[in-house]
Every structure is written in structure tokens, then in C-alpha cells.
Design a protein around this nucleic acid. Structure first.
Length: 195
DNA sequence: TATTGGATCGCC
DNA sequence: GCGATCCAATAG
């Protein structure tokens, strides 16, 4: 259970590497004396302003400028009128890139997650980007949060992951030729594949 | 100022 | 398979 917090150098690596290496690490949130955590089992990479699926595609806007900032910060956005998605900014300042956290395997604070999600099904708690934000209570106020602080961060708990699969990214229509979704094979908490 | 479409989810 | 629901980005 003892873990080592990932530092800013980790997030400064090439985005595809960060996306792969995040698998098997633990997302931890400490808030109001409550600790929530879950193992990261699915990620997606969004790299550069030439990636047509990235929010940083094209020019700088108020929303995507955080992706141009230094690595190790969060980028939260609101989507479809209902849901938030959690991203980690990667690579050096000036280069827009981020990793979307798509699914977790709940570990600590599961009771709180059930309450936040109003769901009794463990497998349905954090198996999607909108769901895990709801389970952790993540909203707009978590945007531009420093991942090296002691609030929201990622831990290496020494778990090795070697069975990694990859595929095209989900829910987008452009840039599907880039197979930049990564997930742990045969894990029950990976989000459902789009039909 | 108006319009449009989206890195989703849950229910039909 | 489709609607809910609202914000950000464009166009005018």
C-alpha cells in the first residue's frame, strides 16, 4: 500500500510513454480527511496541435492553453452537458499534449465512490472517463491542479504490468488512425468498447 | 449574439 | 440506438 509519488519528470516524458507507464499506477485523491484511490487501467494520448482529435488542434484558446503549459498538471473539461474528464498534461511547456484517464479499478474509499455515483455495482463505478470523475467528485475546480502536491496525485505501488493492449481512441471521429488508447488486457474495469 | 457539435452515459 | 444537457469555439 506504500507508494512512491510520481514527480514532474515522469510527466515530462513523451506522451505515448506516459500513457503506457500510467497503467498499473494509482490515482489518489486526499480531500476532507477522505482518501480515494484506484488503479489506472485505461488511458488515451493526445499529442500536439497536429492531432485532429486533440483539444489543442489548431490554435491556442482559453480552454486548451493548459495543455501548452508545464507537465504534471491536470486538465479537466466538461463534455456533453453532463460529464467531466480528467487529463494529465505531459511533455515540456510550449508543446500541447495530455493523457486522458479513461478507467480505474477502485481501491480505497469505495464506499464514498458508491455514494458519489449513486451506484451499487462495483464494476460500474469507474469504468469510463465521465464515471471516474463522478466517483471521485472531480469537477471544474480541479482544473490546473498540481499533481506533485499532496492533494491529487499518482503513486507507483510497485505493480508490474506487462499485458498491455492498444487500439484506436474512443468517441472521436478524426484521428482514428492513431492507435493511442492503452489498457490492461483482461481487466474487468476497462471501459466498454463502443459498438 | 447565435449556432453547432462534442475525448459520455444510461435508458429506450 | 438515441436523447439529455451545456459549454466552448466559431461565424457573422
Amino acid at each position: 500500500m506504500k507508494g512512491k509519488k510520481l514527480n514532474r519528470d515522469f510527466f515530462a516524458q513523451p506522451t505515448l510513454q506516459v500513457a503506457r507507464k500510467l497503467l498499473g499506477k494509482y490515482l489518489v485523491l486526499k480531500q476532507n480527511g477522505i482518501k480515494l484511490s484506484g488503479k489506472i487501467v485505461e488511458t488515451e494520448a493526445y499529442v500536439g496541435k497536429e492531432d485532429p482529435a486533440s483539444h489543442a488542434f489548431g490554435k491556442v484558446t482559453p480552454r486548451n492553453q493548459i495543455m501548452y503549459g508545464p507537465p504534471g498538471y491536470t486538465y479537466i473539461y466538461f463534455i456533453y452537458g453532463n460529464y467531466y474528464c480528467l487529463n494529465f498534461v505531459t511533455e515540456k511547456a510550449g508543446f500541447p499534449a495530455a493523457v486522458l484517464i479513461r478507467a480505474l479499478e477502485p481501491r480505497e474509499g469505495i464506499k464514498t465512490m458508491h455514494k458519489n455515483r449513486d451506484s451499487l455495482d462495483l464494476k460500474n463505478l469507474t469504468n469510463g472517463p465521465g464515471k471516474l470523475c463522478q466517483a471521485f467528485g472531480i469537477d471544474r475546480s480541479f482544473n490546473t491542479c498540481d499533481l506533485t502536491a499532496n492533494f491529487l496525485f499518482v503513486e507507483d505501488r510497485g505493480e508490474k504490468v506487462d499485458n498491455i493492449g492498444n487500439s484506436e481512441r474512443i468517441g472521436i471521429y478524426r484521428g482514428i488512425d492513431r492507435k493511442w488508447r492503452f489498457f490492461i488486457l483482461n481487466n474487468n474495469f476497462v471501459s466498454k468498447i463502443r459498438s
